[in-house]
Structure formats: structure tokens, C-alpha cells
Design a protein around this nucleic acid. Structure first.
Lengths: 188, 188
DNA sequence: GTCTATAGGACGATAGAC
DNA sequence: GTCTATCGTCCTATAGAC
């Protein structure tokens, strides 16, 4: 199809680059170049420019991570084990961080929280949806609604923080140490 | 003193702005303007330009947070209580995030991990020093060297992640929920 | 130590042809 | 849907006067 192709290629490149380099660290030129899409088509497909592109990129990340979380949660009946599986999967990406996929939205969230209300809201929604997935799993394992919601927030923070520390240390051990502490965290 | 004054004013403004807006989201013009320092003096005091300024800013943040951590650790004999005191203190800043002080280096770390080796190393050092402080406290409470190091890494990730999630949600509750889980995390 | 002026490039965005 | 050309702004950094 002549419509969807360019748009999707641009959005895919934007998603990748915003994840790795952030909003202000990524230029539209670089996105176009890396996408391989025709140069003239960016503002046709994304008339509101960079901000629109970033919002849609956040939604892409949100959706992708949601799938990954679901996969891990469905693969193990025990909540602790299922979350550890997700972290294990995440840690394997740190052997080659340049090709990262499934990086959450932390960088964009921190950059834009005080600068763009629309982007801030997109990031907030992403976090909320991920937490809802975790919370559902915890409730079905017997946690109270309140407890499940609280622990889900902590899990989110652990994942985002673990990625940052692992990036800064160029080492996947931080994420694996986090994984190790998950059962501790889920003890009543 | 005519030397130290301008340099310190520039560095203070740079530290604040890099924390809030990141490396690529902050321009040298904005730093000069906010510092109130003479415009012509930036490259005199920081001949290597923006990167040098950011590295020194990271060192400032590292030092500031180190002091805050020490304060909290020294104020309570129990490790869990002392870390909760640190998080409590941190959470109080979210009533007015624009005036943030004592924001760790997460945003800069994520932005520059793959782009500037020097900045990546400055962030890595900051994390390492904070972890060493936590680990010392945990060892003196009876944790093994290995266990203390592991948990310190997890604490670091929790703090960074908590800040990001709190920023995205514009709400201090995520950090407070994390604080609540600290005793759980420190159970043997 | 500080100033002005400016180079030289990248940026986001728009206009108008095709 | 895509193209090229271009606008105006911002950026980092430098040169040379004072």
C-alpha cells in the first residue's frame, strides 16, 4: 500500500531513535535518513511535526512493552517468576544496547515532563497501562487492590531505574540484581 | 573574588538546568542568561565547552546527593529507616518540581550513555559512590559484602526510577510507595 | 576576565511545484 | 504523496578588541 508504508517507516525509526537518544537529542533529519522514507513526506504524514511524531512513538513503545509484559505474565503462574522472566528478557538486550528494543519511555518522560504537557500525558498513560497489567497479575495471586497497585508502581520504577543504571554502568548486572530481589519484594 | 564568582554562578545554573532539561534540552545561552554571569566568560572558565560544563555539573550533583545520603544515613541507626528518610526528603520536592534540587543524574545518564564516553563515566562514578554509601550502612547492619552491594544497586535503581515515574505522573505518591517497600526489601 | 561580533552548521517548519 | 528549495531561528564555538 502506498499510504501506510512511508508513515510506518518514519514512525518506526522515530520510535527507535527517541528511545535511545531522547527528544532533544534526535533530529527530524536523522529520523528521515534512518527511515529510508521519502524526505518530503514527513509533514504530510505528521502535520503537527516533531511533537506529534514523539507522541505516536510513545504510544508505540507503550504497546510494544505491553505485549512483552503480557507474554511474561502469561508464561508463569507465579507473579514473582513472571516478572523475573520479563527482567531476564530485558537484560539480554544489554549485550548490544545500540540495537535496543523494548526500552521503556523513561528518557522521553524525564525530558518532557516539564516541557510538553501532551508528551507528559502520553508517558503517564504508558506507565499507567503497564502498572495495570502488573496489578492484575498480583490481584489474581491474592494481593489486595491497594497492595497490588502500590507494588506495581514500585515495579515500574525498578524497571526504569534498572535500565538507567545498567546503561550508565554498561553492564546488565544491575537489572539481574533487581530480578533477584523481586521475590523479596512480593513477600507479604 | 573576581575569579571564582562567575565560574561558580555558571556552574550552578548549568547544574540546575541540566538536571531538569537534560543535555540536549539545555542551551549554553540559557545557562548564561540564568546564571547572571557575564556573557563573555563561559569559554574562559570552561574552555572545553558544553561537555566540560556537563561533566562538572554531574560532579556537583554527585557531591550534593552524597551529602544528602550521608545526612539521612547518619540520622537513623536502622538502615531501612535511614533510607526511608532520604526518600521522604526527596518526595517533598515534588510539590514544586520546577525548583528541584537534589535530582540525581538519571536524565543525563540516559541521554549520554551512548553518545559521550566522558559523560557516561562521570555518571557511572556518581552511581558508584552513592552505592558505596548505601553498602557501607548495610554492611554495618550485618549484611554480607555481596548482599550489601547488590541491594545498594537496587536502591539506586529504585530512587532513579521513582523520580522518573513521579515526574511523569506529576505526583509524589510513587516515591512514597517505594519508601513503604524499603523494609520489605531489606528483610534477609 | 570580559566584551562584541560572527562564523558555520543544524534545527524545525513552510511553500509551491509536480 | 512526494519533491526541492528555503525561511528564520537556534545552536556551539571562535576571533580579536579591551
Amino acid at each position: 500500500m502506498s499510504y501506510g508504508d512511508s508513515r510506518e517507516k518514519i514512525l518506526a525509526a522515530a520510535t527507535r531513535l527517541f528511545q535511545l537518544q531522547g527528544y532533544y537529542g534526535t533530529g527530524l533529519n536523522q529520523i528521515i535518513k534512518e527511515s529510508g522514507a521519502p524526505k518530503g513526506s514527513l509533514y504530510y504524514h505528521f502535520p503537527d511535526g516533531k511533537e506529534q511524531l514523539a507522541i505516536e512513538a510513545v504510544n508505540e513503545m507503550s504497546h510494544y512493552i505491553r505485549m512483552k509484559i503480557k507474554e511474561s505474565l502469561d508464561a508463569h503462574p507465579d507473579p514473582a517468576e513472571s516478572i523475573q522472566a520479563f527482567l531476564q528478557d530485558l537484560s539480554s538486550q544489554f549485550t548490544c544496547p545500540e540495537n535496543f528494543e523494548g526500552f521503556p519511555v523513561g528518557l522521553l518522560a524525564a525530558e518532557t515532563a516539564l516541557k510538553s504537557e501532551k508528551l507528559q500525558q502520553a508517558c503517564q498513560s504508558a506507565y499507567q497501562e503497564w502498572e495495570n497489567l502488573f496489578a492484575g497479575k498480583l490481584r489474581s495471586a491474592g494481593f489486595s487492590d491497594e497492595k497490588a497497585a502500590e507494588i506495581s508502581t514500585v515495579l515500574n520504577a525498578l524497571i526504569e531505574g534498572g535500565i538507567i543504571v545498567s546503561l550508565a554502568k554498561k553492564d546488565k548486572m544491575p537489572i539481574l540484581h533487581i530480578s533477584k530481589q523481586i521475590p523479596n519484594l512480593l513477600k507479604t
